[in-house]
């Protein structure tokens, strides 16, 4: 019988080993982005802007030109690149602290300008890199190292809903919240990431994919338990779905 390789590591991922904890969803999302870049045949004109956070080394994990932005500033850095080289594909990869706390102004204005860039936003409701502190997206009641008694909205505010905030911005071309917590959802997520990149290729504006992700280490769960927790808790607070889709009929 003749064998053929069916699924293997995409070319747009480098040989560098991920620095992420076992079971962390960053790796799954990295691979999906790389597969999309391979399939769209844009590897040689794509530039990645990594954030500060657990994925600070993301620029090393992609076999692409890349850089790291100061904390929260990835959308501004990507804007500068895209304006200087409008025919390249530029994407940012950001976590919840980077995008929804320190970088709130940058993401809102990039979205509002309809900047032709793509943002992959990893929301795991906690600060991973610095050791489990409260994130802007931490759930109410969630215990973190800076909310030892649980997130209290009176004191700590409410979880920020990024997609809901961005969905009324006129410059947004594609906006979706999804998870990668089952093989079916992973396959679906890839289609969405592809749409987001296509929105950029077709120059119809800003695109963002929010991925609800696990942080088994800081949540204190096994990777499998973490997925269960995500489905039972995070999805309730952050409903999944397509918030904006202007890609229809554009080619």
């Amino acid at each position: 019988m003749i064998k053929e390789m069916f699924l293997k590591k995409p070319k747009s991922l480098s040989e560098k080993e991920f620095t992420y904890c076992p079971g962390c969803h960053h790796g799954i999302v990295h691979r999906l982005i790389a597969e999309v870049i391979d399939e769209l045949n844009i590897r040689e004109k794509t530039i990645v802007v990594a954030p500060v956070g657990c994925s600070v080394f993301a620029y090393e994990f992609f076999y692409l030109d890349g850089t790291v932005a100061p904390h929260g500033r990835a959308p501004a850095v990507a804007t500068g690149m895209k304006r200087a080289l409008p025919d390249r594909i530029v994407f940012t990869y950001q976590g919840d602290g980077d995008l929804a706390a320190i970088g709130t102004a940058e993401i809102i204005h990039a979205a509002n300008r309809g900047e032709n860039i793509t943002t992959i936003f990893i929301n795991n409701a906690i600060y991973g890199m610095t050791g489990g502190q409260m994130a802007p997206t931490s759930l109410i009641g969630m215990k973190t190292t800076t909310t030892p008694y649980g997130r209290d909205p009176k004191k700590d505010g409410y979880p920020i809903h990024v997609c809901e905030t961005l969905q009324n911005m006129k410059g947004v071309a594609y906006l979706e919240r999804l998870t990668v917590s089952s093989p079916q959802e992973v396959i679906k997520a890839k289609k969405s990431i592809r749409k987001a990149f296509e929105a950029q290729i077709n120059q119809i504006g800003f695109s963002l994919i929010e991925v609800l992700s696990t942080c088994p280490t800081n949540w204190g769960m096994t990777p499998v338990e973490a997925i269960k927790w995500l489905k039972e808790n995070m999805v309730k607070e952050f409903p999944l779905g397509v918030f904006v889709d202007k890609t229809k009929g554009v080619n």
Binding site: T67, T79, G80, M81
Partner: peptide
């Protein structure tokens, strides 16, 4: 930071 991006 836009300067950073364009300069890069």
């Amino acid at each position: 930071n836009m300067v950073y991006g364009a300069a890069s």
